[in-house]
Nucleic acid binder design. Structure first.
Length: 505
DNA sequence: TGAACGAGCCC
DNA sequence: GTACGCGCTCGTTCA
């Protein structure tokens, strides 16, 4: 029987990463204090306005009657008690421990159409999250440097995650809002580069799909990440919704990617994914999703095929959406990704027999009582982060050794964040490309699939919200992927050079 | 005062 | 038979 012991190389790598992340913490990320103070004032006022509108609704009298002086306009349990207890709406979801009607956005969204009070509550709740967790959280952690400017110093941990990823706190730089455009702008505009410089990122593309290829040996997954003409999210969208690829919009592909493909790889199943898909295609920011280049909604299209209802996920009757997604699940694991499914079974069985498992990066887990999902996800998520961590070490050490002015200022699991000197921008992205895509094989010789690095940059002196994708031009320089959009938004690309006083590199 | 809970944000 | 992976931070409630 194999004994699972972390290798000396893995220990050395972990200490090296701790050293490099300590340097990253020491530098910190600059904050636009003037903007932050203004944003706190503005968002506070916006919340007050929504609270006033909420209180003006007739339904609010019921809330007031129930809670009186204890009324808290932001309390989830209060709005749930009023809506599901007093106003007669039926709750679809219950809380985990106490089994009460859940006040989640997913549950309340169904009520909001008929109840303006709930609509105001949900809108205010989003802004409160932005204000309390993010804006006020940033201000609490902000310190002034000798240059007179303000910075936060997010702290990275390498000892708190089961899968040997990092975590981050005070503030958590790894969960700053991104998906909701309005909230993302409010918060990300706080983060700015040092004067005369620009923020940059380099992301590992699809790392969580590439890493399992050598681990599981799945040939279908290998083809998806090696053949640029293949796209598994489009393929799954076609299969799930019985469409041809030109009929699948980007929006529908993204829904399938998050609500089906990744969820299923992570261990979910049709009982949950069918419900999420059913709801998501009917409500993308309040609107139903339509077929590409057509007025027909996805729900209408399914109805025309004879699939008109979700059905009971626990007992799916033929002709329901749940039964259809169950059949897709069976095809997903039984045919399409058969080898991946076999690997999961074998990997978990070996864990039960041996009491542990070892990542390809040399990290060993010896812990009883882990379930199959944890055991199968850990080596993939953890190893993906280790690739990023090794690249961060190489890049940071090189930038320091060459006394470059550009610096690594953060890390978010599969991406590295930079504060760039404009004159060094191309050198940094070139270095990152070579380390992340080519030299990474020195660290991970087991990696037998190509990796891709996806660079992004914001204009000089612009905020984290203004990042845009770059691509390598034939001359080796990095230019905006969409030059037209860049220049429409930010002016001539030629302006993204160092100022006179900064000189050349 | 601290733990538990429920909620929402990220990859 | 399966039954969404890994984190951090917030406000409220309750002992």
């Amino acid at each position: 029987m194999r004994r699972h012991v972390t290798t000396p190389e893995a220990y050395r790598f972990w200490l090296r990463l701790a050293d490099n992340l300590a340097q990253v913490e020491g530098r910190g990320v600059r904050i636009d204090k003037g903007y932050l103070d203004g944003a706190i004032t503005q968002v506070t006022a916006d919340i007050r306005a929504l609270e006033a509108a909420l209180q003006a609704e007739p339904d609010f009298r019921v809330w007031r009657r129930r809670f009186g002086e204890r009324t808290r306009l932001g309390a989830y349990d209060q709005v749930a008690a009023v809506v599901y207890g007093d106003l007669g709406f039926k709750s679809e979801l219950v809380t985990e421990k106490k089994g009460r009607a859940a006040a989640t956005a997913a549950n309340l969204e169904a009520v909001a159409a008929a109840c303006p009070m709930v609509r105001h509550f949900l809108e205010a709740a989003k802004l409160r999250k932005a204000l309390d967790t993010y804006l006020v959280g940033i201000r609490r952690e902000m310190v002034q440097h000798a240059d007179g400017l303000w910075y936060v110093h997010p702290s990275y941990n390498l000892n708190s995650v089961l899968t040997f990823r990092s975590s981050c706190e005070r503030p958590n730089y790894q969960n700053q809002p991104k998906r909701n455009p309005r909230i993302a702008e409010i918060v990300r505009r706080c983060y700015v580069p040092r004067p005369g410089r620009q923020l940059g990122e380099d992301d590992y593309g699809q790392i969580e799909v590439r890493v399992p290829v050598p681990i599981t040996g799945d040939a279908t997954l290998r083809a998806y990440v090696c053949d640029p003409t293949k796209d598994m999210h489009y393929d799954m969208a076609c299969q799930l919704f019985r469409l041809e690829r030109p009929q699948v919009s980007k929006a529908l592909r993204n829904i399938v990617k998050g609500a089906y493909v990744f969820a299923t790889f992570y261990g979910s199943y049709y009982g949950l994914t069918a419900k999420d898909l059913w709801e998501d295609v009917d409500n993308l920011d309040g609107k139903p999703v339509r077929l590409e280049g057509s007025d027909v909604t996805v729900r209408q299209h399914l109805a025309a095929l004879g699939i008109a209802e979700l059905g009971d996920p626990d007992d799916p009757r033929p002709g329901t959406w749940a039964a259809h997604v169950r059949a897709v699940d069976e095809d997903f694991w039984g045919r399409r990704f058969r080898r991946y499914a076999d690997w999961k079974r074998e990997w978990y069985a070996a864990y039960l027999a041996e009491g542990g498992f070892t990542f390809p990066t040399g990290f060993a887990v010896r812990a009883p009582g882990l379930d199959k999902k944890q055991v199968c996800n850990a080596p993939i998520q953890g190893s993906g982060f280790h690739l990023l961590g090794w690249a961060l070490c190489e890049i940071n050490e090189r930038l320091v050794k060459r006394r470059m002015r550009s610096m690594v200022i953060g890390e978010i699991h599969d991406c590295i964040n930079f504060d760039l000197h404009p004159a060094e921008r191309d050198d940094v992205f070139d270095l990152a490309q070579r380390v992340m895509v080519e030299r990474i094989r020195e660290f991970a010789p087991w990696l037998d699939v190509p990796l891709v690095a996806e660079p992004e940059a914001a204009p000089v002196d612009a905020s984290w919200h203004d990042l845009r994708a770059l691509k390598a031009a034939p001359d080796g320089r990095f230019v905006p992927s969409d030059m037209g959009k860049w220049e429409a938004a930010f002016g001539p690309w030629a302006n993204q050079r160092p100022t006179e006083s900064q000189g050349a590199a």
